[in-house]
Write a protein that binds this DNA or RNA. Sequence first.
RNA 1: GGCGGGUUGGCGGAGAGGUUACGCAGCGGAUUGCAAAUCCGUGAAGACCGGUUCGAUUCCGGUACCCGCCUCCA
Length: 498
Amino acid sequence: MVTIRLHNSKTRKKEAFSPLDPANVRMYVCGPTVYDRAHLGNGRPVVVFDTLYRLLRHVYGAEHVTYVRNFTDVDDKINATALARKEAGDPRSMEALIHERTEETIGWYHADMDALGALRPDHEPRATAYIGPMVAMIEGLIAGGHAYARAGHVLFRVRSYKAYGALSGRSVDDMIAGARVEVAPFKEDPMDFVLWKPSSEEEPGWSSPWGRGRPGWHIECSAMSYELLGASFDIHGGGLDLQFPHHENEIAQSCCAHPEAGFAQVWLHNEMLQVEGKKMSKSLGNFFTVRDLLDQGVPGEVIRMVYLSTHYRKPMDWTAEKAREAEGTLRKIAQFLSRDPFTKPWVDVSKAVPPQEVVDALANDLNTSLALTHVSKYLKDEQEMQLVGALDLLGFDVEALKAKFAGFELHAWDNGFASGHSLRASGIAPAPWQDQLRALRDTLSKLRQDAMQTKNFAPVDALKSALTAAGVEVRMSKAGVELLPGPGFDPAKLEGLK
RNA sequence: GGCGGGUUGGCGGAGAGGUUACGCAGCGGAUUGCAAAUCCGUGAAGACCGGUUCGAUUCCGGUACCCGCCUCCA
């Protein structure tokens, strides 16, 4: 069996991965707070951990991996969004507005992440469905002396957990010394954090031993991972920005609530994303969502490939240039895959399996960049079996690639060996302009054959320029004429040509 | 201020203590009515200083610069 090696944030070392139970490999990844569309940075961990999920399924068997990613649907940002709608005149209750907001956001999230080729996790628990287990865990922490109730709040007693700070490499004393925030007066210690807080009438709340309130941010992940994966499981992932305080607090809560267990064995953190060399932020005006890109015509596969081109533990820079390059690569792949079967060796791609060297690349701390290098090699060497197997493991749907990126080719073969015309539409539905393009191809072919005799190429070049301007790639060779509508194809510009 | 990460050729981006990464772009050639596409060939690197070593871009230390976290954030 392949040995997967992962860089464990907890030990700061690359370690051989050894699941607690190979028959049930368990992974928990922190999911989104569902108050708005997922931005480009939110997509990175989704694709990174989707790739790991696919690798684990490949190595241990799809039915032996359990992947949990939560939806945080109780949060002050959600409340704020709902409140804004209410103040804008919406007559419905806050509860209804909050529910509407979380539901629509989850729907967006699914649609956007599906477009990136990410498999849905096995479980996508919502925090609001686990309030009971959270309350139970908090009660346990109080009973164990790890938490205390004050002024309607319940706080975690950081000093009661000796290893606090181990994950993020901080000491409690250093953090207090460098703290910049005001400390609530009811805290025993400045670093103590909220497990439960009171809710006003307008805010969502649940009854609890401490009055009507709602959970703090961190407790949900501790409670849900415990309910769905147990007190000990294999992998916990998330963005580097969650390492502190979120993951540190999760560890403290879970390890104090279940001191007999080890909580997550391996911690993985992906580095952050930048845009054209700068942090993505609304104030810099370079903030955009996954949906923004999709709407601009950047296919999800392109976004996925750009994500995978940088190792997950390095900062990733999103640039238009990278997207352009990735699109070019995908087009070449798709054109090769959908090429006429008579022009390449026949292989039964339904039997394709991921090449060992690609599995090895991913098994080496998810070296997706190296895996993509192998993909380029298979394309260059026309190794279709390897190519398809690798694309599949990396989360690219071969049929979707062919449909989206191959477009179609229009051939007019002139020579006697391959005479006649052919139209191959690779997976896309017939469009009204196809007939027009076909006619243009015939015209161009005719003009060119005439020009070969008369040596007057002006009409040929004129039509070629017009087609090029419409985003159609024109290829002419001894064999004949080919037209390939490219990424910038604009059927409107075909009007008037004949 | 505290903590963590990074710095590879024009750009992106890997592996490996000693022999070509690779992709894109460039350049030269083949091919083409001209192009495009394709094919062949090709130059170019390891922030800086020091140490370990027969030998370091790869290991160790320091300097500079960049980035992130410490407050909601993937």
